[in-house]
């Protein structure tokens, strides 16, 4: 909160002592806040709220997405979702990705961050950059790249495995329902670890070294130091990382799925986003696709709120 005393001093600093003529500081402050919030709010409404409302509106219609006319069918699209086995599978797949990506990305991110800061590894700067590189690549590039790695016939992975077997390995990772979802995880995790790692490195570096020194003197092992010092003091960042992974997965796993499998084989890797696209743009049920969009919105909200609830801890102050 800005206090009363602060406001004039700001004016002073800018060197406009008489600037407030005809306008007292309260109005000015209001105007100031107004200028910074209203445009943002307008943009938010225009680009977030309006499309959401429009999407919800469309979800009440039977509309191909191309015709001039749409017919109002109330909640029929939502009712149909209840009987759609593919959608159920897609939701399961979404949460499969959420679960394993949180474990993979946050787990590895924390591990690398601790390794690069606390273990005084050599060449930590180099590793930092290497781990971060996937983050500056487009997901599309990552998808294509891993498609080549997974290529059953000329891909790197099978060629590598074939070194250890007598018969040539010919597993079709993305073509077999049993492996396809698991095969989506490595590229997804690989793409996300760097960001979490950087976030946590910054956070760990801000922990006063005295705390660790004290820990050492008391005979705490590295593990104990991690659990008692690092974890509590970086909890906010870990929480943010988890939420980041969850939200980007629920809203954005479409890209990697679409690039790598288009939801196949036989809908085995369908996630809500890819199924939405399939329904809206390939099978011409835009109303149903919008209903799926609404479902994604609702599930994302519930998941995020629930997670925030679960992960709430008392914050530790470092001073």
């Amino acid at each position: 909160m800005i206090t009363v005393n602060n406001a004039p001093s700001i004016d002073h600093a800018v060197g406009k002592p008489k600037a407030g003529k005809g306008m007292n500081w309260k109005t000015k402050r209001k105007l100031f806040i107004f200028v910074f919030t209203v445009p943002t709010l307008l943009f938010f409404c225009l680009f977030m709220i309006y499309p959401i409302i429009q999407g919800l509106y469309i979800s009440l219609f039977d509309w191909s997405g191309g015709s001039e006319t749409k017919s109002f069918i109330g909640f029929d699209n939502y009712k149909e979702m209840l009987n759609d086995p593919i959608l159920g599978h897609a939701i399961y797949n979404d949460y499969f990705l959420v679960f394993w990506k949180v474990i993979g990305i946050v787990g590895l991110g924390v591990f690398f961050a601790v390794a690069l800061t606390r273990f005084r590894m050599k060449g930590s700067g180099f590793f930092r950059q290497v781990f971060f590189i996937p983050n500056i690549l487009s997901v599309v590039v990552i998808g294509v790249l891993w498609n080549y790695i997974y290529n059953p016939s000329i891909g790197f992975l099978n060629s590598f495995l074939s070194l250890f077997t007598e018969k040539k390995v010919e597993i079709s990772y993305l073509g077999d329902e049993a492996y396809a979802m698991w095969s989506l995880l490595p590229p997804a995790i690989w793409a996300g670890v760097g960001f979490v790692m950087i976030l946590l490195i910054a956070s760990i570096l801000s922990i006063p070294t005295e705390l660790y020194e004290a820990g050492n003197l008391d005979g705490a092992t590295q593990w104990q130091q991690f659990v008692r010092i690092t974890m509590p003091l970086t909890w906010e960042q870990i929480k943010v990382s988890i939420l980041w992974v969850v939200m980007t997965t629920l809203n954005g796993s479409f890209v990697i799925v679409w690039i790598m499998t288009e939801g196949g084989p036989d809908n085995a890797t369908q996630v809500m986003g890819s199924y939405l696209y399939q329904m809206g743009f390939r099978q011409y049920h835009m109303g149903y696709a919008s209903a799926i969009g609404a479902l994604i919105l609702i599930l994302s909200l519930i998941t995020t709120l629930a997670l925030q609830r679960i992960m709430r801890r008392d914050t530790y102050e470092m001073s």
Binding site: N147, Y150, I154, S172, L174, G175, A180
Partner: peptide
Amino acid sequence: IDPASAAINHTDSQSLFLQHK
């Protein structure tokens, strides 16, 4: 049927065909 067929797109399958796989 080449097991590679299961998940590859047209360019990949055509490449394998052209490479006499």
